[in-house]
Design a protein around this nucleic acid. Sequence first.
DNA 1: AGCTCTTATGAATCATTGA
DNA 2: GTCAATGATTCATAAGAGC
Lengths: 275, 275
Amino acid sequence: MLATLFLGDCREKLKHLESEIIDLIVTSPPYANQRASTYGGVKPEAYMEWFLPIADELQRVLNPSGTFILNIKECAVKGERHTYVLELIVEMRKRGWLWTEEFIWHKKNCYPGKWPNRFRDAWERMLQFNKQRKFKMNQEAVMVPIGNWYETRMHTLSETDRTRDESKVGSGFAKKIENWVGRDMVYPTNVLHRATECSNRNHSAAFPRWLPEWFIDLFTDPGDIVLDPFIGSGTTAFAALAKERNVIGIEMHEPYYEELKIKLEQFTPNLRLAI
Amino acid sequence: MLATLFLGDCREKLKHLESEIIDLIVTSPPYANQRASTYGGVKPEAYMEWFLPIADELQRVLNPSGTFILNIKECAVKGERHTYVLELIVEMRKRGWLWTEEFIWHKKNCYPGKWPNRFRDAWERMLQFNKQRKFKMNQEAVMVPIGNWYETRMHTLSETDRTRDESKVGSGFAKKIENWVGRDMVYPTNVLHRATECSNRNHSAAFPRWLPEWFIDLFTDPGDIVLDPFIGSGTTAFAALAKERNVIGIEMHEPYYEELKIKLEQFTPNLRLAI
DNA sequence: AGCTCTTATGAATCATTGA
DNA sequence: GTCAATGATTCATAAGAGC
């Protein structure tokens, strides 16, 4: 698998990529007013204006059957949630993106904290955008174990379970039972209820590894190309390479870039440093 | 405590209320394309236009230190999430509302389903709007025990136990828990991870009882006035009365109104039927 | 007759509460 | 412990309506 790394601002570096070559974009851009020391700190009022040209370029490089996953959460300004994320979604649709779904990352262990008018913020948006209604989706790749109710319920299959299933399917009891008995995995929901990474050392953005992995499993096949225009410490890159996907990363903060370069060199023999 | 019930469209009936008398509005209006048989079924494209005049009236009747909680979730149209909720938030802000917070209701038991491009929808928005940055908030009233104790214990308690405890301690059930377990309490997050009601009673409660109860504990004191302009089966009314709050409800669907009238007459001697 | 747009119907699917 | 009931879904397809 090939890893390609760019040093620079993605507003410029994305222009170097050919059109429609990316199968999945998964990224966590700097949130408004955050990470000012490393990324310059985009103001909430200016966020949409800053991000829209990037979104346009991402639309150009994405394969028509590809998916764009945007991890974002608006900050609170003067006691209110800011609306730049909402306005961004509306504006991206006007520019051709389809807003397919909003996944929720429900954080199991979030920072404790209390404010006079607000509780701890325990969730973030994982916005799914597409270019077409039909896109690649491998639902079986992210199935989860069935709930505890299943064991006791299926142990003694009640009469109504049989009749109800039979009446709905028509073709028969046997087939339906075949579908259910022995099943240990079910499809997940649009809420990802997982913990944040605790072992986050010298990087400011906490993007747990399972997050890009889950979307890589769901929206790509081995050999596909994953892009992260704000790759930071490289979580998306290591997730993609571990899953046998090629990765393209862009990073404008040079210390992060240098550190990631060293780590990637140790991880893969196929690292390409682009201009 | 006094319960006041209106029969009619809240677009008209809200005009009968005096200004700034309501301490908490908590409601779950019909979602777009839903409940067409009883409420006429508002189209997604027309939703904002339909709701904004109601939001204006709600702003008028709300006390300056009061809170408006709106339970809503957009539907999927042609493979996309519709944007009418996002646009509604932006527009309500332009008309003077502050969008203080977005709570998430993470549903433990969501509707089953499988589609080629989508997983089960397991969450809904609980939007918090205010008129001022400073509003009434009793954070201690909704503290939860550390760990999972709260969720399991709340469910196993019978309804009579809960109301008895509530009337004794006055400031709510959470206070009682606090007495039991001392200092092992923490503030909750902005994610409510609870189940929907799926009991096999004849009336389908649109809205699980714990939902208005939680916000009533958090945003009102005993004796305050709670308003639900889409009261339906009356969940908000029974929650408010059990918590020693006055309630005003509006219902346009006459069968629901009649049924609620009878149930409220049995529940409280102070039912007022307004015109 | 052919085209486009709108509306109705069926199918696949979990996890919970209360009796 | 067992069993019964059910919920703010969504999409593909078929059928109907207008031009």
